[in-house]
Structure formats: structure tokens, C-alpha cells
Amino acid sequence: MVLIGLSRIRFAFLLGGLLVVALAVGPFTFLSLYGLNVIFFLLIFASLAQSYDIVGGLTGYINLGHITFFGIGLYAFGIFINMRIGPLFSFMLGVPVVALFAAALSIPFLRLRGFYFAVATLALVGLLDLAVGSNALAPITGGFAGIRIVAQNNQFASYYLALALTVVTTLSVYLIRTSKFGRGLLSIRDDEQIAEVWGVNTVLYKRLALIISAIFAGFAGEVYLWFLTIVAPSTVLGLDVTFRPVTIALLGGTGSVIGPLIGSLLFSVIDQGLITQVSYFSRGVIGIIFLLVGLAAPGGVVGFIKTQMVRRFAISRQRVSRVRNRP
């Protein structure tokens, strides 16, 4: 059992490493510009879902407003780069802005529990949309017409940044899970009061989790703007996009390291494949897949595979024992 577990992790690392290398050489070899675009958005949503899962999956706080961190990062980066301080400094300065925002937010919001936390964070998305689109902030945010940065061909650079971001986010989630911090978060998810009794500093842990998840999401926002060069507020702060990190994480399997990655892969493939082949009922097909995954697999696709493996393993062991017990 231990051996299998170990080899599985090694196998995952090996496979992941190969995948990253393939994606890294992709733009020079097999990947068209369209393919690069599709994978870029896949990576952005993968890192969004992955970073969402630090709070949603590990800590058990469903943050429906995760996209606000993405938006703050995006706008902070845009405003900095329009101040002509260069992309490098803009990327670097955007991160503390998002972290500070998350820290400030965590003080009131983390007092809320479960369902109430989810709805309060969801409400925040609308507030941010309102603020950046307003006439008052239009001189720096571009108002309803969206924020625009000096157009350069940043697509390749942003592709690699997105790839790096996804890798770093995934590794961080893995490291967090295996650390004392991660076990603390899991104990909060299982029972916050008991965790507190056992000496977990729940307030600090939750706050840290929120800040870490916000930093990754904010960075994703920065890369997103660098790639697109123009982003209108309602296209990132609308309802469809708001729910996406959550649905992708749920689809793949929330609370597992590779779940969000699988979720975004599945989502992108279905989405792009369907849209370009059949022009009708694409929404319906995605809906049916959500429905089936929701019914069949509590832990998303990853959970489904896991239960199947456990069942098969159990059956084979049963057989073995049956064979052994034969007189």
C-alpha cells in the first residue's frame, strides 16, 4: 500500500514534469497560435481553480468571490504599467496590493461561516465591477470601456508566465497539503471548533490561506491583462466567470491537488471542441456533464476515479482472500 502510494506520487510528478516540458516547447513545435490561446486560457482557469481550492477545498470555505482577487490583480497591474514603471515592477507591485486587499478583507469576512461567507464574497464581485466601471475611477481604470495597456506582443511571454504560475500554484497546494499548515486547514474544514480546541490558530490559518489563494489569483489576473492588453470589467467580473473557478474545481474534484487541473482540462476541451464543431446545445452538453459528474462522483472526476480504483482493489483483494480461504 505504502509502495503503491509512493510510486503513484512519483508517477504523478513524472507525468506532470513531462507535461510541463511538452507545454514549454509547444509554442516552438506543435502548438499553433490558436492552440496557444486555448492553452493559455486553460492555464489561467486552472491556476484560478487551483488557488480557489486552497480556501474552498482545503479549508472548506466556499469563496464565490474568488474572481475579485483576479480582478484586483488585473487592475493593479494595468494601473502600474500605465504609470510607465515597466512590466517587471508592475508584476511585482501588483502582488502586495492583492495580498493587502485579501488581508483587509479577511478581517470582517472570515468571521462569517459556510453559506454566509459564500454569499458575502459573491456580493463583493458586483461591488468591484461597479467600482472599476464607474465614472469616478474611469481616469485610471478606463471605466466601462475597460482597462487598456500599451499593446505589445506579449502573448508568448504571458503564456510562459501562465504555465509557471500553474506549476507554482499546484506545487504550493501540494506542499501546503503535506505540511502542518495544510493539516491545520483540513482540520478547520472538518470541524472548526474541534480544531481550535486542539490548538490550531484558526484565525491566523484561515487568513493565511485566503491571502495565499488571493496572491495566486491576483497574479493570474496580471498575466491575463498582459496577454489580452484590453479587458472590459464586465467580461471578468460577470456571473459566468465568477462561478467558473468553483465549478471547475468541483468538476475535477475539490480538495485534491490534480482535481482543478483535470477540471479545467475537461472544461476547455469540451467547450472549445463543441463550439467549433457544433454550434448549438453546447451549453446543454456542458450542463449534462456537470449533472452526471455531480450525480456519479461526489469528489468530481478525481473522486470518481479514486472510488473506482478502491472498488476494484477491494474486489481483487476479496478474490484473493476467497482463493486463499479455499479449503
Binding site: 490558436y34 486555448v38 486560457f41 471578468v236 459566468d240 466567470v241 472549445q272 463550439i275 454550434s279 453546447s282
Partner: peptide, 11 residues
């Protein structure tokens, strides 16, 4: 069909 989704339209 862009499904009224800007990211999809870009792709």
C-alpha cells in the same frame, strides 16, 4: 458561438 463570454470570443 461565443456564448456571450469574452475569453471564449478571444480564443
Amino acid at each position: 458561438d461565443d456564448s456571450s463570454d469574452a475569453a471564449k470570443a478571444v480564443q
